[in-house]
């Protein structure tokens, strides 16, 4: 009864690594030899992973063009076999892979664009959650405000880059004009990814609110995060920043440190 368990690892190596297929494979299939059939299977395996990557990285694909993207994905697939039964999990290491991929070295911003696309991909498939309940917040005494711990929505991500990655991302969305020109020296970018209903939205934060949100993201209390941000950015406008982030649905909930 172990036959399947015995044969699968060898079959997997034949597909993924191109090893000799295991001898137990039924070779009675009339149309193709075993090695041709394995090649067809492998081609579908590669094609599916390629399509999964193309689905997760459409902007990278447009930036480098189809031929280059296919080479990139083939190299990625060779180094990063799929580890999950869910193809939506495939492609997480792309930013790091591109950073080390010699033919793409010239495009210094490409790893950060890939990181932003992965954040968008994860945001799209993140769990649903409510938004901050201001009614519940209004019942909280002011003395508890410094101890507030804001919980980020599971679809909220930040990606920081020295390059204008949010502009690059927007220029490659469906319906965006073709005749864009982006100056890489336009300054760094704190991209904010959120999901509104089923749409992923990419915005930008200034340095102060980005720092504040990154501290909040670590589970730091509102009081400490605000004090820490004000040290570096004395002109930090908490009220404006908080209103904006709450209205965009960045927070799902809050707790109060020290209260049950």
């Amino acid at each position: 009864m172990n036959a399947l368990g015995d044969i699968l690892p060898g079959f997997s190596r034949a597909i993924v690594r191109g090893d000799e297929p295991p001898g137990q494979i039924n070779s009675a299939y009339p149309k193709h030899t075993v090695s041709t059939a394995i090649d067809v299977y492998r081609n579908n395996y590669l094609g599916n992973l390629h399509d999964a990557l193309a689905g997760a990285y459409p902007v990278v694909g447009q930036l480098v063009g189809n031929d280059f993207f296919r080479r990139l994905t083939r190299a990625y697939i060779g180094k990063n076999p799929s580890r999950s039964g869910n193809l939506h999990h495939y492609g997480e290491q792309m930013a790091a892979f591109i950073a080390a991929f010699l033919p793409a070295q010239q495009l210094a911003y490409l790893p950060d664009v890939a990181a932003l696309e992965w954040a968008c991909h994860c945001a799209y498939f993140a769990e649903d959650a409510g938004t901050l309940d201001t009614g519940k917040l209004s019942r909280l005494g002011q003395e508890h405000y410094p101890d507030l711990v804001l919980v980020l929505h599971p679809a909220c991500y930040m990606v920081r880059s020295p390059y204008p990655i949010a502009d690059i991302w927007h220029a490659h969305q469906p319906g965006a004009p073709d005749d864009f020109h982006i100056d890489l020296d336009g300054g760094p970018c704190n991209a904010l990814v959120i999901r509104n209903d089923d749409s992923v939205i990419v915005g930008e934060l200034d340095d102060a609110i980005a720092l504040w949100l990154s501290i909040i993201q670590n589970g730091t209390t509102l009081g400490d995060a605000t004090a820490g941000t004000l040290e570096k950015h004395p002109d930090f406008d908490l009220q404006a920043g908080l209103s904006r982030l709450v209205s965009q649905g960045v927070f799902a909930d809050f707790l109060v440190k020290g209260l049950p």
């Binding site: 280059f68 490409l110 690059i168 864009f180 982006i182 020296d185």
Partner: peptide, 19 residues
């Protein structure tokens, strides 16, 4: 392999730095 997509619309002095 040479990238041949929209990347030619993105330029700047820092383009070549990291490579």
């Amino acid at each position: 392999a040479v990238p041949k997509g929209t990347c030619d619309k993105i330029a700047g002095g820092s383009l070549m730095d990291s490579g």
